[in-house]
Design a protein around this nucleic acid. Structure first.
Length: 465
RNA sequence: GGCGGGUUGGCGGAGAGGUUACGCAGCGGAUUGCAAAUCCGUGUAGACCGGUUCGAUUCCGGUACCCGCCUCCA
């Protein structure tokens, strides 16, 4: 059995991973708020935890791992977008427009993350499907004295949980001293946070013991994790930005609601993404979505490869240069696998698995990968990381494949002739036309080989026939 | 202001208290009609200052700089 070691944010140490139940390893990862296209930063945790998911499946068996990632579909940004559409003349009630918006965003999200080669989690619960559980949990917290009702809101009583701040290494007093947010007047204590809040007529709402309202953000993850994974589960993941306050609040709620459970035993946080050395933000104008990159012709697997080149606990800098290098490296790796069909089920080499099992050291694993000499090792490693074995060349439409065959033969013939006549003008003309179509021309003693490159243009190629 | 993280060769980026990381680029060579691709060879880097040690880039302390979270955007 491979030993997996993970850096647990809870203890700040790299620890050996021991699942509660090896026949059902359970992981929860915070998913997106579905109000708009996922930006590149949203994709990092998806790729990181997809890698962990694949590793767990490799070690414990695919049917023995349960991965849950939620969709937050109750949020003021969604409401705002729906309202904007209604004002712009879109037909339907606000509720319908909200539903429409979340449905369409989830479809985008799926399409974009599929393109990155991320497996779908076993469960993708939507907050709106678990309102009942959230209300029950909130009521339970009130009953136990961990929460209170004030001005139509229900608030969590932070001082009732002694370990509050432990995960993020903050003391409650320090946070109050440095707080920059205005404190709502109905709070008993400045750090108390909302479990339930009232909804106006326009806002989506559900009936509750505290009137028509909607849940606060943090309670959904606690309620859904409990419902789908139980009082105690193995891994909870998300971006470092969520460590405080989101995860801190999840722990407080869950620990108080289910004092006999551990909630999550291992907490994993991925560092943030930057773009060309700077934080990606709308104000800096370097903000872009996964779809933007895909539309620019950067394949999803290249994005995935770039992400894996950096360890998940280091800030990752997205640069155009890295994308180019990743694309070239990936193409080279593929070129080594002469017969992809023979390696469909190839297992990753032991040292490769061990490297990834060591706190997801994907960057180190990449170094091993580029040095494997056998097809089978390369294929196994690519399989584990979720890369297809077939590159662009094998996925060509049949018309392009035929054109390549024809042109290979023609070039070889012209070259053989030129060898004797010493007149290479025709050969060179064909070669530059092929290069212009994005095809790499390889000529050696063994013969002629045409390899479509990243800029391959099937139309130009077929025109040459 | 509070809390956390980082600083490795031209670039990217790991591990390990003492032996070449690795990749890309560069340079030299082989090969090639010319190229490309490929193959071979080539780089003693570790922010700064102390400490521990026979020995530190790796451990400890401090300094500087950078970054993130605490605030809509992850």
């Amino acid at each position: 059995m491979v030993t997996i070691r993970l850096t647990n944010s809870k203890t700040r140490k790299k620890e050996e991973f021991r699942p509660i139940d090896p026949s059902n390893v359970r992981m929860y990862v915070c998913g997106p708020t579905v109000y708009d296209r996922a930006h590149l930063g949203n994709a990092r945790p998806v790729v990181v935890f997809d890698t962990l998911f694949r590793l767990l499946r490799h070690v414990y068996g695919a049917e023995h791992v349960t991965y849950v990632r939620n969709f937050t579909d109750v949020d003021d940004k969604i409401n705002a977008e729906a309202l904007r559409r209604q004002r712009a003349g879109a037909p339907g009630t606000l509720e319908e427009l909200i539903r429409q918006r979340t449905e369409e965003t989830i479809a985008w999200y799926h399409a974009d993350m599929d393109a990155l080669g991320a497996l779908r989690p076993n469960h993708e619960p939507r907050a709106t499907e678990f309102i009942g559980q959230m209300i029950a949990m909130t009521q339970g917290l009130i009953d136990k004295g961990h929460a209170y009702e004030a001005s139509g809101h229900v608030l969590f009583r932070v001082r009732s949980y002694k370990d509050y701040g432990k995960l993020s290494g903050r003391s409650v007093d320090d946070m109050i001293a440095g707080a920059r947010v205005e404190v709502a007047p109905f709070k008993e204590y400045p750090m108390d946070f909302v479990l339930w809040k009232p909804s106006s007529g326009q806002e989506p709402g559900w009936d509750s013991p505290w009137g028509r309202g909607r849940p606060g953000w943090h309670i959904e993850c606690s309620a859904m994790a409990h419902e789908l994974l139980g009082e105690s589960f193995d891994i909870h993941g998300g971006g470092l930005d969520l460590q405080f306050p989101h995860h801190e609040n999840e722990i407080a709620q869950s620990a108080c609601a289910h004092p006999h459970g551990d909630f999550a035993r291992y907490w994993l946080h991925n560092e943030m993404l930057q773009v060309e050395g700077k934080k990606m933000s709308k104000s800096l104008g370097n903000f872009f979505t996964v779809r933007d990159l895909l539309d620019q012709g950067i394949p999803g697997e290249v994005i995935r490869f770039v992400f894996l080149m950096t360890h998940y606990r280091s800030p990752m800098d997205w640069t155009a240069g890295k994308a180019r290098q990743a694309e070239a490296t990936l193409a080279k790796l593929r070129a080594r696998i002469k017969s992809p069909d023979l390696h469909v089920g190839a297992k990753a080499p032991d040292d490769f698995v061990a490297c990834i099992a060591d706190d997801l050291n994907t960057a180190g694993a990449m170094a091993l990968l580029v040095n494997y000499r056998s097809d089978h090792e390369v294929a196994g490693a690519l399989n584990l990381l979720g890369f297809a074995l077939q590159g662009r060349a094998e996925q060509l439409p049949s018309s392009s494949a035929r054109a390549l065959q024809v042109l290979t033969a023609r070039l070889a013939l012209a070259r053989t002739g030129a060898m004797t006549t010493k007149d290479f003008t025709a050969v060179d003309a064909l070669k530059s036309a092929l290069t212009a179509a994005g095809v790499e021309v390889r000529m050696s003693k063994e013969g002629v080989e045409l390899v479509p490159g990243p800029d391959f243009d099937p139309a130009k190629l077929e025109a040459l026939q």
